[in-house]
Structures are given as C-alpha cells and as structure tokens.
Write a protein that binds this DNA or RNA. Structure first.
Lengths: 172, 172
DNA sequence: CAGTATCCGACAAGATACTG
DNA sequence: CAGTATCTTGTCGGATACTG
C-alpha cells in the first residue's frame, strides 16, 4: 500500500504523530480509508521546516522522488550512467539536446543526493567518471518502467502532441 | 530491456529507420551495446517535428513519460483519483499546497493525454468527477514505486535538503 | 461548486565566452 | 577534457478577482 503519514509531523522527533480525532475529523482531512481519515500529501509543518521561496511538501514519498528526478535530464543521466556511459563528454554526446552547463548542474545535484559518485583522475587531459551508488541503482527499476511505459504509449502521446501543435499554429 | 530507436525516425512512416554504419559509427553515436551502436536519447528529426521554443526530444520513452508526469501535482492527482477522490474540491483539499488554477490546468492536460476522463453532472450546484482511464491505471505501478522509493529513502533526502538550506542561510 | 482572466515573480535552462 | 561566469530567455506556478 501507499505510505501516508497520519496528521502532522512533529518538529522535534521528525516522526509521524497521530493527532487526536477531533482535529483529524476537521476540515483539513476530508478523506477516509475505511473509517481512517487520510490526510494525504499534507503537512504544513514540514514545508515550513525546509524554507524555500516556494515551499515543497516533502512529506509525501512521491514528492521526494520527484525532487530527485525533477531536472530536465536527470533520469536520462541515470539511465545513461547505468549503461556504462561515465564520462561527461560522452554523456553530453548521448544527450545531444543538453548543454554542458545544465548537465553539470544536474550531475552535481545527483551527487549531492548520493545517487551517483564522481571519480576524478588527475591527469592531462583531465578525466572524470560517474558511477551509480546503491541508492542510484535502486532507482533503475523505476526509470526502466517509465521508459517502458513511454514506449508502449508512444502512439497516443505523439498524437496528442501533434494535435496540440496543430491547434497552436492555427491560432497564429 | 530498454527500448531504443536505432538512428533517426523517418517522417513519413514514423517507424525507426536504421541508418548506415558510416553515420552510426560517427561522432554522434559513441556508444555500443555489444557491437550495436546505441544512439540513446537521439533523434533530431522528431524534435523538429514537434516544434516548440525549446524542443523536446520525444523519441525516448523516458522523456515521453516525463512529459505526462511533469507538472507539479500530476502524480499526486493521479494517486488521489486512484484512491477514489474524484471531485475537484476534494482533490484540492487533498493537496493543500496547490491552487485551483494549477490543479485545473493539470487536470486538463491529463485529460488531454487520455489519462483521466471528466464526467460533468449538469446540476446546481455543479458537480464534476474525474476517473482514471486504462492508460491512467497503467501508470499506477510507476507512481506507487516512486512513492515507495521516496519513503524508503526519506532519511537521506531530508538530510541533504536540510544541509542545503543550512548552507544557504549561512551565506546570507 | 467549478472554472477562468489577468498579472507577476521565481527559477530553470539556453547562449556565449572564458579558465586550467 | 572538464568546468565556470555572466547574462538572457522562457515557463511554470502563485495571487487575486471574477463569472455561471
């Protein structure tokens, strides 16, 4: 089953805390799983903890995963690395629509999240290689199923996009 | 296995077309699967077909899936609908950080991609319900595994984000 | 309740030129 | 080859106020 926190997450322990029913049954939790109220995707506290201009509701596992796979090329980078493409220049050749700058930014973020590691060889010319960590490997099934799904539904998606663009050009 | 197109996709048939080895072995395809060159994530033709200011390389299944799950709340919406939350107002209550406008935009896109259907009851007050299509249902395993992964790796991700924010506030 | 119009700010990513 | 600095552009989503 999906994993949801009940109620808000207390700041001190960072553990989910079941709030009393009076509040659970209030206006913030209009949904029930059987007789259990389900405050899905909810937790004001946490989004205040991680201060950002536009706060992220991190309490939902879904949202945390999206945080990691969010960049324009991150899933592609991970797949490419898993295929044995390790060096920055090869990665950019494998993803031709990307730019060096963005690829570097996203590789840095993936490294920050411990999804990949960076191996620097101090040579001339310099050489760098990226590798998946165990965490990164554990993402591969998801990426693989996303890739499979996209390929299975290619026809529908392409049709919609072609339609959309046709409508847009008609407007102008 | 991952599903990659070899070479470019011809405009007329929209079928993958194997290009001759001279080009495959050129600088654009530096990767091999066994002795087969793998032009992953590549296809200039397609990205020109779907004209956008910033063209999308749609030839990769991964990228197509991201196109559908890309919005800020789309995965959450799909999960919520799969849990039986059907009405717009309930959906917004289930995703408190969202706004009506964005939710509507994203529901419209999901509908456009045939992932959900919209049922309008002509009543007063008006009533609307959303349902997953078969295509939408087929996305649930992916969403579920993303949610699971996020929950399993919650500790690491939260630690990184807390660190990052601490470093940022230190700067100022 | 469901949905839209308008305006605006934040941020991601592109372009280019540059170091070591 | 790997990486960065700087500037510009596009776009997504937020805020608000409004219809039916």
């Amino acid at each position: 089953m999906f994993h949801f926190f009940l109620g808000q997450i207390s700041k001190e322990t960072e553990q989910p805390a079941i709030r009393d029913n009076a509040i659970l049954w209030g206006k913030y939790f209009p949904l029930w799983y059987g007789i259990v109220p389900i405050p899905i995707f909810v937790s004001q506290n946490l989004s205040l903890m991680y201060e950002k201009k536009i706060p992220l509701p991190l309490e939902c596992g879904l949202t945390m995963t999206k945080e990691i796979l969010g960049g324009k090329w991150k899933p592609n980078l991970l797949l490419a690395i898993s295929l044995g493409i390790k060096r920055p220049s090869d990665l950019q050749r494998a993803i031709p629509h990307s730019t060096k700058r963005v690829l570097n930014l996203q590789l840095k973020e993936l490294e920050e999240f411990r999804v990949i590691t960076k191996q620097i060889y101090h040579q001339l010319p310099p050489k760098v290689e990226y590798f998946l960590t165990d965490i990164g490997e554990s993402l591969l099934p998801i990426l693989k199923s996303m890739d499979d799904w996209g390929n299975r539904n290619r026809a529908v998606i392409e049709a919609v996009i072609i339609n959309r663009n046709a409508a847009e050009t008609e407007e102008h």
